[in-house]
Design a protein around this nucleic acid. Sequence first.
DNA 1: ACCCTACCTGTCCGATCGGTCAGATTCCTG
DNA 2: CAGGAATCTGACCGATCGGACAGGTAGGGT
Lengths: 194, 194
Amino acid sequence: MLCVVNTSAEELRRIALQHFARIGFAGASLNAIAEEAGLSKSSVLYHYSSKEALLAAAVEPAVDRLAEVIEGFTRTGRGAMDDEFVQRFVDLLLSHRLEVHVFINQGQSLADIPAIQRANALIQRLGDAVTDHIPTVRDRIRFGVALGGAAYVLVAAAQWSSEPLDDLDETRAALVDTITTLLADLPVSSAATA
Amino acid sequence: MLCVVNTSAEELRRIALQHFARIGFAGASLNAIAEEAGLSKSSVLYHYSSKEALLAAAVEPAVDRLAEVIEGFTRTGRGAMDDEFVQRFVDLLLSHRLEVHVFINQGQSLADIPAIQRANALIQRLGDAVTDHIPTVRDRIRFGVALGGAAYVLVAAAQWSSEPLDDLDETRAALVDTITTLLADLPVSSAATA
DNA sequence: ACCCTACCTGTCCGATCGGTCAGATTCCTG
DNA sequence: CAGGAATCTGACCGATCGGACAGGTAGGGT
């Protein structure tokens, strides 16, 4: 026990996250995860008491970051739809795209897992805040396309392209630019492009 | 055999599609699908020879439509990024959002199924066409956010909201408007907003 | 009446699932 | 060196998976 953070546990978390994102939580098997990590299924269940615990450990850091971002948005009210929120959101996607992909696409079927439940509540809160501030269907869809599309692009890039993020800074800038463009006309984003 | 299209088979297709979209193909069980349809697992395997065949039947019509839309886009070349393509795409999403959700999010893990393979090839072809016509990373991401975001919004609406599409016409108009806005600056869409 | 087809079912099978447990191995610490 | 915690493993369990198979039932055409 020399390491502060166990290397096997951390590698398992990484591999498991890829499996959960690729074939879904229900479809992923502890055996396959263990095999890719060079361990046995028993060793996986030694580091994480259950499959659900493994999922929780895999997504929890991302949920914490999401909580910070969304809380920073809802706390300051409607004036918060500025460049800072967009940049925080894009950075969250860039550093935790697999986790976001998991609780975006499997959030409903995994609602009984506390960590996922927390993520669902956060997204729900963001949606409610948007619904309150943005009255028209058009603007609400614009908001959804902006944030959802950004999330999709990163996941799709990871799926269909061999080298998705070779130019990370340019990708980040392009995402911020795109979202800002879509949110510029929204009533809630008076200071967006200023 | 009075019906031209078997009612049980069609209802199974519908229910199975919901299960595949919600918990993934690997996680969905024939038992659960059969139970929701009021049948036994054996009856499911009578109408569809295997689980994969059920998936293929569930997504195949949507893949056919996708082929038409993408073929119409790539055939006419770069000038095709007009309102007509956007409208066709939005209509495809509105009428087949569950199917699109399936082969967008599980296309890689289900690549050995012919129908999914066909969908993957189509999306790949669309991506290649975009990559050829759109040189800069910024514009490519803009394109991905537009189409991916539109797909995401409909799926997310189905997941988080109880009544997602009460105002279908307005939703359609808003999606077309949003995508057109994002694609207006792209070099390939000279006739987009004209 | 007959059969034939469509439709549905229960039973059984091998494989795999997540999870438990007892024991082996390693490795730091005193 | 001794000992104890940390790590890892194989054997095993009940449950469930997709699928094969034989049989049962209802209806329509001859």
